[in-house]
Design a protein around this nucleic acid. Structure first.
Lengths: 219, 219
DNA sequence: AGTTCCATGTCGCGG
DNA sequence: CCGCGACGTGGAACT
């Protein structure tokens, strides 16, 4: 990454035309070739930018960044106040535990949402092919393996199928039925689940939060 | 603006929960208090951020940024590789001549889009209350004042009405009829225009660009 | 303040 | 490659 603080004027010609009069700004060039021109305010969005892939042509005090679809960003550098180049390396990337884990937590606290008389045996119940989100017992005393997804798609049903295969080999648990739970269960996932005898259910996150906080209020 | 390159781990708790494992990243703190954590790729969007207004609490190697609605960004700084603070000052801001001026330019080059036999008299034709976007002559030899907007709303019709009032006092031009042109003309604007005897027309930007480049190709 | 709509939206998935 | 939908969408204009 190259970081330059400089007096500059900037012109963008692409999806629209835009112009930045001369002022001091931060210019950031990332390793993938994307360029961003930042002022000292205005949230994280730069004043002007060009996303990778780009051709970056630097000649003296004029940078010309050309995008793949003919967009151009022209930066005239009038005076460099400061410059630094650093190699950050690959980033391991962002882990969002947000929604899925939160859904799982809420359902673990109110398993009756998944059926009258449903009780929780364990969260993250281990199997040789990974942990089942929720292992429950229904009103009839049968074991239920619950897979929780934010968006219910086919791969989630496949995952639950693998868990069921292993869980049903355990005589203390078998027979185990599957329940696929998501905020939205896609039609293909519904079809596949039904074909495999797996129940599916949509749950509303906001409603769950309401139920959850109602319960908490009792204590 | 404060620029820090450091090994860090980042945790965000707000609209969702997210976590960034330890790695070297750029941390940018702008004068308005907003904070952004950038990797060396991935367009201009930071991995994590907090928009102003924020409380920024720095204690030793842990920064805690708290937003107005209780969101928190926690940055643990393990090792600072580089740091720089610079005052960029106010930015004069971005000038977009983009869409409206571009529409005007395209229509000026192909006025026949606005009616068979339509020809351009002048762009930015001056009146005492401001310039009319396009002054044209139609197939019947009548003068047409054209107001061009990206989105056609009531104030645009009002503007055109004022122009017409003045243009019609000029005996060399009168009678002048009005034409309100936009990519999208809102229902209220349509009604008002029709009520005042002003024609309106929707034009498609992409189509115009196509027509325009077709014409350029002839030369 | 709440709501609606725009954006050089960006980003990721599925066809 | 392209269309479609979600996003910590952000931001402006309007009610």
């Amino acid at each position: 990454m190259r970081i330059v603080v400089a007096d500059c004027t900037v012109r963008y010609e692409g999806r629209l035309n835009a112009y930045l009069p001369r002022a001091t700004r931060l210019i950031m060039v990332k390793a993938d070739g994307c360029v961003a021109v930042h002022a000292d305010g205005g949230a994280y969005k730069p004043l002007n930018w060009m996303n990778a892939p780009n051709d970056l042509l630097v000649e003296d005090d004029r940078w010309v960044v050309t995008g793949s679809k003919g967009e151009r960003l022209m930066i005239d550098i009038h005076e460099i106040h400061f410059e630094h180049v650093v190699d950050l390396g690959e980033d391991p990337g962002l882990e969002k535990d947000g929604v899925e884990l939160e859904l799982q937590r809420l359902l673990a606290e109110t398993p009756e949402v998944l059926g009258d008389g449903m009780t929780l045996i364990r969260r993250e119940f281990p199997t040789p092919v990974g942990p089942v989100d929720l292992l429950c017992r229904d009103a009839d005393g049968a074991t239920v393996a619950v897979e929780v997804k934010r968006r219910g798609e086919i791969d989630g049903v496949e995952q639950l199928t693998r868990y069921l295969e292993f869980l049903n080999r355990d005589d203390r648990l078998a027979p185990v039925r599957g329940l696929f739970v998501a905020q939205l269960v896609k039609p293909q996932a519904r079809t596949l689940a039904e074909d495999r005898g797996i129940d599916w259910q949509e749950v509303d996150y906001a409603t769950l939060q309401g139920i959850d906080s109602d319960i908490l209020r009792l204590f």
